[in-house]
Design a protein around this nucleic acid. Structure first.
Lengths: 209, 209
DNA sequence: TGTACATCAGTGAACGCGCGTTCACTGATGTAC
DNA sequence: TGTACATCAGTGAACGCGCGTTCACTGATGTAC
């Protein structure tokens, strides 16, 4: 895969933190280009940056911490895409569907990032990262809020917005992750399928009480 | 993990094929006990069986082929569980829901098996295994049939059963795989959640035309 | 203005590990004569 | 009934690989005096 990269010039005094960002960028680039989480090794990242492996440890305690930093960035990217999609929609319900489509699109456009965010092992997380960060990086909380707005606007029947949000998430995640996991399956046309599934779930919620 | 196992006595002449089954059983046992696909290595399997690593290659061309054999067995197990659940149900619609619940239960009861079947990488498959075997091992085809029966019984509006089956699969897979991938998330009570989601999707389908 | 020195941003070499796989082999076992 | 022999079911040792991580170090750079 990798011929050794050009040696990176040493940072000036006080600018050591620059390397941290370069490491994160290299890790993400490797993930995207190789499409393979396994290819993102300490050595490959270091080589990509133009630096030796031990220098990674000047900025990250171990590999887990590094990968988590990458995930954080991806969670933020996902949230941004969903929020952007939700803007300039005519109604709360339209915003909700726009979020759902944006979520699926994020997964299909960034398959490896999606895999590490949502399809990997529970992850030997540093501390209680998982819940806290995932909720506080907000994509899910924004979804809960969006569901709540639909209920207030009368677009959805009143219920626990948290539970409804989980069900929407499960549906969007289900179709996204199956498409990624089984690309050889004879899927019906994807765009139609996704819209249809989201519509079905929304209709099912509306039919509820 | 593993202290070396007792040496397995050599099979009698003509009974060499016995080892093949023992290898598959050991691989599955390792998967279940360790709960970690990575722990299922050629060496670990051989040790478990009580045999040296090269003897694996008397029965499998390479590791991929072995893992696929394990997957096949799991697909059959999943199909069996769903079909059993579908029997003795009062209506086609009840059978459909029973299948859905059985699917989710299979995933939650056999997390590592579920992971290798539905959450892994598309897999460097030997040949076109993926589509052919997955469909022919029948779990999905049975689902399509079940959807068709619901339509004929008038429990679901007429539509393309294949597409509806895909949507049901996506929903069931969505909740199953999220539960496995994010065990630390503050899920609402699982049994209720699953039933509710399946009911929502069915209601959404019924609300369709 | 010049120089000793602490600090910062890394390097080079090595550690031990487990992995999939190959190769030449061995020794028990059933069969043919 | 006895024995040579082919075959079958494995073994033992090694291959090369890439991995995360540690350790003692170096050399440029800014600062204090």
């Amino acid at each position: 895969v990798s011929a050794t990269r050009a040696r990176r010039p040493r940072a000036r005094r006080g600018e050591g933190e620059h390397l941290r960002d370069e490491i994160l960028a290299a890790a993400e680039a490797l993930l995207i280009e190789t499409g393979d989480e396994e290819a993102v090794s300490i050595r490959a990242i270091a080589d990509r940056v133009g630096v030796t492996p031990p220098s990674i440890y000047l900025h990250f305690h171990d590999k887990t911490e590094l990968i988590f930093a990458v995930c954080e960035a991806q969670f933020r990217a996902l949230d941004r895409m969903m929020e952007r999609a939700a803007r300039r929609t005519p109604s709360p319900l339209a915003a909700l569907c726009a979020r759902g489509r944006a979520y699926v699109r994020f997964g299909l456009d960034h398959p490896e990032q999606y895999r590490i965010l949502f399809m990997g092992k529970p992850a030997a997380t540093p501390g209680t990262f998982d819940v806290d960060k995932m909720r506080s990086t907000a994509a899910f909380d924004h979804l809960v809020d969006a569901v709540g707005e639909c209920m207030e606007a009368g677009d959805l029947p009143r219920a626990d917005p948290f539970v409804v949000a989980v069900e929407l998430w499960a549906s969007a995640h289900g179709i996204t992750s199956l498409l990624l996991a089984k690309p050889a399956f004879p899927w019906p046309p994807v765009a139609r399928l996704v819209d249809d599934l989201l519509a079905v779930v929304v209709a099912g919620q509306q039919a509820r009480v």
